[in-house]
Design a protein around this nucleic acid. Structure first.
Lengths: 213, 213, 213, 213
DNA sequence: GATTAATCGAGACGGTACGTCATGTCTTAGC
DNA sequence: GCTAAGACATGACGTACCGTCTCGATTAATC
């Protein structure tokens, strides 16, 4: 069950495989080249031609397996990043969430931040990319996160009346926002403050604020 | 005190204005054309040539005043959108914040959402665009928002120990996130939940959770 | 031994011909279009874009094979004109020369005259064009002419003490001059007079003029 | 009686000259700049803008007085070259002719040769330039030359049955031809041979050749 | 001395063509 | 039936000059 290869044409299992089989080696060379180019120049600066040249492959070969640059970039990105992100499972659900939030921040701060942002932006116009980012990048992380939230609700750490989705948006939203807009630092201090605000809320506690439910 | 014109060459106050003066009419025609094209096709689909044609201007004239498509798009976007967003000033600071959050959401949901997202993404690679988005789009809104937060702190509605910046990130981050990724709806119900989570926090109150300060 | 193709990349005999081979059909379409445009508008009025459009080819394809407009024009001109000029071989060398002179005059008077003049002028600044005109246009005609002159010398029709090159310059120079400057007619009467002057000289015969050897 | 200024709008003598009079200094600066640019880059490489810049004049000023680049170039060329060519008047008409031929060759060999060629070529498409070259460059020289020829006829040096125009074409044609095509040297030896061929003819004298009158 | 008319500089403007780049399709030969 | 190489049409890019058009500043001759 590979995560990658999503956009690429699925190998129809039934076919008796006539002719020369697809070269796995070429496919990997292309993905590697794409990753290298993405890191070096960002989605916008990358061209299919430069990837082809670096991979020692022909453009046609690329076009046979990926419909366009964004699809290839998505595949390359996911192949490179997906393996590096794991989900911890500790005693406290809240602690697990905090841990995840911080490790995501590290990823976004690193050299993949700009690539992710580019892909997200691309996904706005290109539905296939958007779908891929939702299904293959965000989806798995969300699913795992949701489970942690539900665990926290069960254990009484997290209020029962909040939407788990909204909890995740509240934790990750501020981080993505700063990644994309760069209007403030993305450091440990920021993480701590976001965490505090999300956990305890921003309303002054004594006053029993009833800000219109 | 015009908001627009930022990227465009500032009027050198001192110079005695030699030569034919810049035509304000042409400048407006170009901005209007850019706005129309952006609305119709999004940043990616727009070309300088199409803007020039629609504006009845020449490409050279555009290149004389804007270094590239993104800079022009930024100017056009700000000229079109900036006037439409006002900051309310009511009795309750929290209510004002909620109001703003909702009106921003409306803007982002409309046809400008994709344009904003594109510009934000562009700003990641293109520093001038990024700076413009920070300075001219986010900046003024942030400044006003910060004042409201401070008002809320002073009146005792908002906790004194939260960073005003983080408050704004907590409110707007989730919305921008959904605009960019589209993983969930952006409706009144969502707004209500984000608001509730941000105001009251996600931690269960009774337990006195001390999630590592 | 093709006359055309000169400026175009010579066929590398050794290479095993990888990739899609050059389309001969496109090459001919471009040359035809160039010829048509040259006839209609002259070298100066022709644009690469108009040739591309008329040929149904892309500009890139043209630029791949010809470095600039002049090179293409030279090729087109030679492809169109070269086949139409033949060298007679009669009993009298002088008669052959006269015949040639007249037929050249006809060519220069026709619609190719201006094109030739343009190319000659272009060749003054552009060495490749100049070389092409010398090697591929003038050269073959000169070589043939020289032979005729030598034949005339052998047969005793032409003085042995004149440089064959100068004989040709003396015959063709006046014609080219009138083509380029247009200061006088280019008709049969003129041809006859040029011929007479060249053959018998301008000095009065009786006087035994010894105009400083 | 200035030779220059031909194409430039003639000063209508009658007008009472209201307003600021044309600045002679600017006119000269423009002509000088044009000459310098022509020498440096040839007609094709010169732009009105570069002349304007070098002259410290504005494009409008140039366009006010000359309709286009070629007209200005013609004026500049004639202003620069015309004074340098004089017509000798010696004892022998043939000697005078030979002298002229050689001095013209010197001019054409120098750095003005390419400019002349360019202007001649330009004159093929642009009637005004062609006319100017005929009227102002060739014309005066021809008129003087014709007189010398007639003098030679009267003195019995030159045959009476040749057209004076053809005599001049026969002498100058070969030289212009080599200037424009560059297929052979333009040196003293060449001049001598052209002269000999023109004067004595190319036909072998003894044979009484009657090359079809 | 003020007015008037033309000239000059600077530079904005619409336009045409340039020569280049990347895209995505295609055609051939080799494996 | 894949692959590498490379030709091709398309469309946009950013640039160079063109020739026209305002501007403000001069510069006389006329009022």
């Amino acid at each position: 069950v590979t995560l990658e290869g999503g956009v690429a044409r699925e190998i129809a299992s039934a076919k008796p495989a006539r002719g020369r089989p697809r070269s796995e080696e070429v496919r990997l060379r292309i993905l590697d080249a794409a990753i290298a180019e993405l890191e070096a120049r960002g989605l916008k600066g990358v061209t299919i031609e430069s990837i082809a040249e670096r991979a020692g492959a022909s453009k046609v070969t690329i076009y046979r397996w990926w419909p366009n640059k964004a699809a290839l970039a998505t595949d390359a990105f996911l192949a490179a990043v997906a393996p590096r992100i794991a989900f911890p499972h500790g005693a406290s659900a809240l602690d697990d969430l905090r841990q995840q939030m911080i490790s995501l921040m590290h990823v976004l701060t690193g050299r993949w931040g700009a690539v992710i942002a580019s892909l997200i932006a691309e996904g706005i116009h290109d539905d296939e990319v958007g779908e891929a980012m939702r299904t293959r990048w965000l989806g798995p992380r969300r699913a795992a996160g949701r489970k942690v939230v539900e665990r926290g609700v069960a254990s009484g750490e997290i209020r029962a009346d909040v939407d788990p989705e909204v909890v995740l948006d509240a934790l990750y939203g501020p981080i993505y926002l700063r990644v994309m807009l760069g209007h403030g630092p993305l450091d440990a201090a920021f993480a701590k403050r976001v965490w505090a605000a999300a956990v305890h809320g921003i309303a002054a506690p004594s006053k029993r604020t009833r800000a219109r439910r």
